[in-house]
Structure formats: C-alpha cells, structure tokens
Design a binder for these strands. Structure first.
Lengths: 120, 120
DNA sequence: CCGTATGTACGTCTATATTCGTATCAATGA
DNA sequence: TCATTGATACGAATATAGACGTACATACGG
C-alpha cells in the first residue's frame, strides 16, 4: 500500500510544519524541490533506505510530496501548487536560497558525525 | 531559571518549524502575534498551566518567542524581527489571515473534545 | 526464469514529546 | 505577614517519532 495522499483542502498547516521540522526531511524536500520527479534513491543516498521510507511516509501523509509508482521506482515530487495554494509564501520562505544549500550539507555532515559517535 | 533564548543568528529553521508544528503552540503563537506582550494566562486559558509551561519552553528554546519576567508575570512576545530577518516571509505565511483565526478555534475545540473522550 | 535494483513492510529498540497533577516560588496587596 | 495570583519545577505516565536490520515485493534485463 503506497500511501494516503491528502487532498489539497485536507492539508493541515501544523502537519506540514511538523513534517518539515525534521532536518533530514527538510534536506530531502530541498533536494526534491529542484526539477520534477526524483527516484527515492537519488535524494539522500547516505541514509538507510528503511529510514528514508519512514520519512517519505511522513512527507506523503502530511501532503508535502506526491509519490507515485513508476516501473520499479517510487518517484517523489513536491506538491508545490497545492502548498502554494493552501499556504501562500510558505514554501518560498522555507526553500529560500536553494543554490548550494548549506542546510543539506550540514544535515548530511551531522548525520555522518552522529553515526561515528554511535559506533564509537 | 527562565530560559535559553537563542541569539538571532542561532535560530534554526528546523527548530522553528518543529516548534510551530504543534497545534497548541501554533494557536498560541497566532494569539501572541496580535499586539505586544502577553501574560501566559491570557493566551490559551483552557489548557493546564503546566502544559503551557512546557510549550512556552519549546517556543523559547527554538527562538520563536521572547519571555521576560515582569512582576509576577512571565510575558510573551513574538520575535517577529528576528524571525523575519532569518527567514523572510515565513511568519507572514504561517500567521496568514489572523482575523477570526479558525485554526485557533479548531485547536481549542479539538482539545475540549479529546478531554471529553479521555474522561469517558 | 533468474539475478539485480528500487523500495516498501514489519518489527524492535531507543529517544523525545506530550500531558498534567502536585509542589513550590516570587510578587503583590490587604 | 499572610493569603492570593501567575507561573515554573518536578515527576510520572503515556504516546509518538526516529533509526534501521531483515525480509519481502516488483520490475526489468539478460
């Protein structure tokens, strides 16, 4: 079972903010925001697949991304029109300067450090 | 001990989104956004004080509100300039139409319902 | 048809969040 | 000075989130 994508009018602001309030999901969304559809594996390849599956569900269920099954991929796409319609300006302020995004790099670096600490 | 208010430059986007991603805190912030300082007791009087204390801490620590001790009150104020400076447009998109805010009413109604369910 | 690639499903462990009763503290005012 | 008011501190219970190993499903390419 692939998901419950909420209808546009059922997207809740607090759910969207909760979904984006996680550094991994925020980094993922910032990556997805560039271009059209992305296969899961292209987004944050460092993070274990089952961990990302968990985060994709959170993003789907809150209405932040579409996920559709094509071939053997589950492609992700930001629901930009729906979010802009429901909460004008929100995505723009969150995605902000996407070029050479420092948060994504920082998130990945922090993840790597925490993994090292966990193994030590 | 009253709080660790982060400096403007230390406010993190994911922390702000997490703080605002809770319906009670979002309703509280929307109330605080109107006017200047507010005593805690004026904001969501239905919610138990110790519960609100917990949420005030979350909002303080993430940098969403200032809280200062005056007389016997701990007054709350939205850190609008700091947030606008760090994340332009974010607050505007979240506070949106503040007049006759449906989310606040909805949050309170939902809270009351859940309390009834808990007692049943 | 069998191996490989892409992801999800499931289960588990741990950590963090949420709620709130009770105790306490500090400032005020009678 | 002593009760009242506004709010935090503490502690405990419960719930939710996060991370991820393993197993499984599905689609493709030979």
């Amino acid at each position: 079972m692939i998901a419950r994508h909420p209808k546009r009018e059922d997207i809740r602001l607090d759910a969207v903010l909760t979904a984006l309030g996680n550094p991994i999901r925020l980094a993922a969304v910032r990556t997805i925001a560039v271009g059209g559809e992305h296969p899961c594996c292209d987004v944050l390849p460092q993070i274990p697949k089952s961990t990302m599956t968990h985060h994709w569900r959170a993003l789907r269920d809150s209405g932040v991304v579409w996920q559709r099954h094509i071939g053997r991929e589950y492609r992700l796409e930001l629901r930009r029109e729906d979010l802009d319609s429901r909460f004008p300006g929100l995505l723009d302020s969150i995605l902000g300067p996407l070029v050479s995004d420092p948060l994504t790099q920082e998130t990945i670096a922090e993840y790597d450090r925490s993994r090292q600490g966990a193994r030590a």
